[in-house]
Amino acid sequence: MQMPADAVPVLELDGLVRTFTTGGGLLRKGRSMTAVSDVSLRVAAGDIVGVVGESGCGKSTLARLAMRLIDPSAGRVLFEGRDVTQDHGPRLRPLRKKLQMVFQDPYSSLDPRFTLRDCLLEPFAALGETAPPGRVEALLDQVGLDRSFAGAYPHQLSGGQRQRVGIARALAYRPEVVVLDEPTASLDVSIQAQIIALLQELHRTSGLTYLFISHDLGLVRYFCTRIVVMYLGSVVEEMADPDAVPRHPYTAALMGSSFVPDPTERAQIVPLEGEIPSPFALPPGCPFAPRCARVQDRCRASRPALTQTTGASKVACFNPVEA
């Protein structure tokens, strides 16, 4: 979905940086690493923006920053044009109704002692409000769970059913934006497809906007309207068209690592060599240079900036793959 240049995005991340320090103590200085490094992102109403990358690329940290669950070291989070970066505690409550999150693991994100009814009423109780009558049943209907489940406990549910509860909880207040942090990573592919179909249905019927965090580029290309590829805390490519040919060698390598469910298309797999370097000792220059097949001398010396390619697409690479 293309937005006009002057439209106010519903969610905007502006130059977000987040560093973490580990170790250290009274007399010893800890080591610090930058989990998210200068990430900017504009999410228009109705968008499904996919953030994709491997473990440790900073995608979950970005989700938590966008949710205002953690504070950025630098940069701003704007919701409907309003800067919410300095808001804390009670001042964040109005935002919580409009910006919600679905977590990765439906086994640890539901309280085992709560019935589904308690679980779906909790978001209201947390803000000192009372749920409108019939809301629990309406939420169960919305996520395709039988109303008889209202009295059930999480352990009586399968993984897919639990994740439906996680989604229902996020929808309790009729939010505008839902951040989905790998909502299908711990599920079977058959159940993953069910959940994605449900999310698509909700997007269509409730006019939701999604920020979808995933490590699965194939899934992101299918589900999202726009794709952001992260590597070691930075955005390396933004694809305005999810079906576009990847320009960054890392995106191309991610594509090359995805298996196609067709035994006649085997030969195309080119596994990416090596592993992500330690974020505590980032190489100078492009962070992907040590693993890149298209690396040049200047990639090791200086860092390529995110620059526009075609349309609203961007790539941070000195030697991008031909379009």
Binding site: V189, Q192, Q194, I196, A197, G218, R221, Y222, F223, V260
Partner: peptide, 15 residues
């Protein structure tokens, strides 16, 4: 259940 390039939105149904 596996998403493939060029799949129409909504065509991934699951079981």
């Amino acid at each position: 259940c596996i998403p493939r390039d060029g799949m129409a939105p909504g065509s991934l149904r699951g079981i």
